[in-house]
Design a protein around this nucleic acid. Structure first.
Lengths: 413, 413
DNA sequence: GCTCTTTTTTTCGAGCCTCGAAAAAATTAA
DNA sequence: TTAATTTTTTCGAGGCTCGAAAAAAAGAGC
């Protein structure tokens, strides 16, 4: 059951609340923080004084417009970039990247490289990743310790975010990335699903549109989803969950990359669109990878004339539409972000998708369903990882510290 | 954003925690409460003394087995039945019932009656309901005020649990039941989906099996679902949500009672099984109601020989199986309770259901999927309403009270 | 039957935390 | 230069939880 609130938890939580308010608002004054948190001015004053002493927050002097108003001017508070740093690692099909991020969310350094992930030995893949992270940590001054690593991977992770259970980008499965990275660098680590990180990023990036409830669908070689419900990132009971692409569109239907039949992805993934456009049978083994250029080419031909290419995109839209209809039957309609290179062809899939949604129970509030496209997923995944990592630092490391957070951080590392 | 914790919230929350611990454990001693809540013995002692003074808790003397142990014997605490009372109202197809429940969860009085809900005028339906509730309240001593009403209805309610948006049991829609009952009796009221209340009841009833994550599927005229994820009742973003029965099984498939095509319910609801068993076309208009006896008859014939009846149940299992497969793709596998009269035919639907699940991505952890049947849904719905209502009383009414909860309750009423 | 041991519950003072009110600080308007 | 205004800090009051010690209420042993 939920545990009672101890007296010392109170300060810890309110400290975390103040840090969160600053992270969200950017450069709020103490008065603004008091307003958003509902705490009294005296409390905010005390807590922010502590946090400034500890080097977590800083008074952002002279940066903001003076905003000539009568009365004592507000002093903007901001996160001290040097309070900590985190590392993000993103592993996708044939692509590995990592970045070192300061406490305020700024990128200190980053690296990326193309790798043949599908064919690589496990040890080589891990070696490349560990070397990249090691280089980033080496370039870091010891006064700003790395306090968290968040890795995003295209694939399914366990609910505790410690292990990649399965991924389409490699033949290997059950790789305990979190344990491996913790072993190597002594830094608390999580492995997350890439689409979940996209959802986290969208909330920070466009809080007006993506706030309490929304869905991010990644249209790429496969179909992924990240979802925020009631303000919280949705995850499965035992894994990262949200495998929208593997909901069943047509029982016993087209062959999916996962080996089963009739999944949404088997109609809407790049390989499925490719297969249909080429008028190959539905149980043809999915192609391993199709370049963005080839997909753009397909889309161009679909736009040019009514033929098998256009029909392939129509079928993709239909599969996504019925899938969304089933999803909306469960969670009700919510704003949708179509993310990734496939979103560039959204004009081709939208009509049949909307038609399909209208045929479902979830389509009844169809006015609440709005679509937006984000063609480039890579920066979103990194941002999501960064915010996820920094939020952990905020809540778990900085807040409970009595002797100062940095000391504790060093102990861990 | 989340609001900061004020100093006075602390006591309120910890009081609520103690009450919740007593409600869950039944008759715990102060020491047990201290252990489960993590609060100190002194705090538990102070809080429980207050709550006993206020008449919320009572020392349950001599009731429990003395349990001959060395040392001062533990004093069992229990909820004082007279601290408050709540009313439950359950409205299903052709059936209305209501009950008066004491603070400890015991039934003080109840009433039920059969009504032709499908054909009734809205005013008559409301009149019957209000009269029934009025009689229950009239029989109640004023020292034990009714502090909450929770109504369960077969159908969709809004996310705030105030209005029935749509229901298969009546032609009328958008009935603001909560406002109507609050207007009539001055008691805070919620309208909930019946399957959601079943899920709430199962968690209290069989906490070993139904704890953090589980699914309750109601097999009846239609197909309903209640789901608990990560310990919380799952609801939609704008409505009660969880309309499993209206996920799409076969695009453009059989005609559903909701007017659309291909829903799970259009294959697995009583009317769908009936339609298939009679070998009627799939777009035949769904029958309004089919008696339990008729369905039992169909099941008997299906068990007796391989014919259209058996095929009808097979198709129902297939629809539920693929539906669960899609659901599991989103949330991962979880224990399932098959509830309602239709669960008596679970032997007929289970084989094709498991076969279908095995064909889906969600079926990969199929060992984690276990099924249980609860043939009688009516008492579960009432229990769920009662626990929902009492939990609200615990958290919102009793906890913040300074002058004692009953005074506040009277003010409200 | 009396004392000792054990376990539960209560009491009491210490230490924090938040709050409101008042004071101090920092700026514009007149 | 003074007054007005707004933000931030200071300070004492009141509450809450905690740990330690005391009190209470039984069984165990002789």
């Amino acid at each position: 059951m939920t545990v009672g609130i101890r007296h010392d938890d109170l300060r810890r939580r309110n400290r975390a609340m103040v840090i969160a308010a600053v992270r969200r608002a950017g450069q709020p004054s103490r008065t603004e923080i008091a307003a958003t948190t509902g705490l009294s001015h005296s409390t905010i004053s005390a807590i922010s004084a502590d946090l400034i002493d500890e080097g977590v927050l800083a008074e952002a002097k002279g940066s903001e417009a003076p905003l000539a108003k009568r009365g004592r001017p507000q002093v903007a508070l901001s996160l001290a970039p040097g309070a900590a740093s985190v590392i993000t690692v993103v592993l996708s099909l044939n692509y590995l990247s990592a970045a070192l991020i300061d406490y305020a969310g700024g990128v200190i350094a980053q690296e990326h490289r193309r790798l043949p992930t599908l064919g690589m030995a496990k040890a080589d893949l891990l070696g490349e990743m560990l070397a990249m992270v090691r280089r980033l940590i080496a370039g870091q001054s010891p006064s700003r310790p790395v306090m968290r690593i968040v890795m995003a991977i295209q694939g399914i992770t366990d609910a505790e975010a410690r292990t990649m259970l399965w991924s389409p980008i490699t033949a290997h499965s059950d790789i305990p990335f979190a344990a491996i990275l913790e072993e190597a660098f002594g830094v608390p680590t999580r492995v997350e699903n890439d689409c979940n990180m996209i959802a986290v990023a969208l909330r920070w990036h466009k809080p007006d549109r993506y706030r309490q409830d929304f869905i991010a669908i990644l249209l790429s070689h496969g179909i992924g989803m990240g979802m925020v419900l009631k303000g919280d990132l949705f995850t499965g009971t035992q894994s990262s969950g949200g495998e929208f692409g593997h909901m069943i569109h047509r029982p016993d239907g087209a062959l999916c990359r996962c080996g089963r039949r009739g999944c949404v992805e088997a109609y809407a993934g790049n390989y499925a669109i490719w297969r249909n456009a080429r008028q190959r049978p539905e149980d043809d083994v999915p192609a391993a990878d199709i370049s963005d250029a080839d997909m753009a080419d397909l889309a161009a031909r679909a736009r040019a004339h009514d033929g098998p290419e256009r029909e392939a995109f129509r079928k993709a839209g239909e599969a996504i539409g019925f899938g969304l209809g089933s999803l909306f039957a469960l969670i009700d309609p919510a704003p949708v972000a179509m993310v990734g290179h496939g979103a560039r062809a959204f004009d081709l899939i939208e009509p049949s998708m909307r038609e399909a949604i209208a045929k479902t129970a979830g389509g009844q509030h169809s006015k609440a369903i709005s679509f937006d496209t984000e063609p480039d997923e890579t920066p979103l995944i990194r941002e999501g990882c960064a915010m996820q990592a920094l939020t952990f630092v905020d809540q778990e490391i900085l807040a409970p510290g009595l002797t100062g957070p940095l000391v504790e951080g060093k102990d861990v590392a």
